[in-house]
Amino acid sequence: MPQLNPNPWFSIMLMTWITFLLAIQPKLLSFTQINLPSTKHTSPHKTTPWTWPWT
């Protein structure tokens, strides 16, 4: 069965991952994020208890 022969496909996959890890990934990680996380408010939320009709 020719699809089980890893000769051409394993080398193509390996070269693709090496290209991604060494060339593309550092360029993508160098971009700054637009939506930076903001600081959380420390005031607690006011919650009201739920009244269940069967209790």
Rank of each mutant, 00 (worst) to 15 (best):
P53M: 06
F20W: 13
S11M: 03
I12N: 02
W9A: 06
P49D: 08
P2Q: 07
P6V: 01
A23L: 15
H41S: 13
W9L: 07
S30E: 10
W50H: 11
P49I: 07
M1Q: 09
P26R: 07
L4K: 07
L14R: 01
T55W: 00
T42F: 04
P53R: 05
P49T: 08
W52K: 09
P6E: 01
T47R: 08
T32D: 07
M13T: 03
T55E: 04
H45V: 15
L28W: 03
W52S: 10
L29N: 15
N7V: 13
K46W: 01
K40P: 08
I12L: 14
F10N: 07
P6Q: 04
P49Q: 09
W52V: 07
W50L: 15
P6H: 04
Q25C: 03
Q3T: 08
K46A: 10
L28E: 02
P49V: 04
T32I: 12
Q25L: 15
T32C: 04
H41A: 13
W17V: 15
L29E: 14
I12M: 05
L29W: 04
T42K: 13
P26S: 06
T47D: 08
L22P: 00
F20M: 06
P6Y: 02
L36S: 04
P8A: 02
W9C: 04
P49A: 12
L21W: 02
P53N: 03
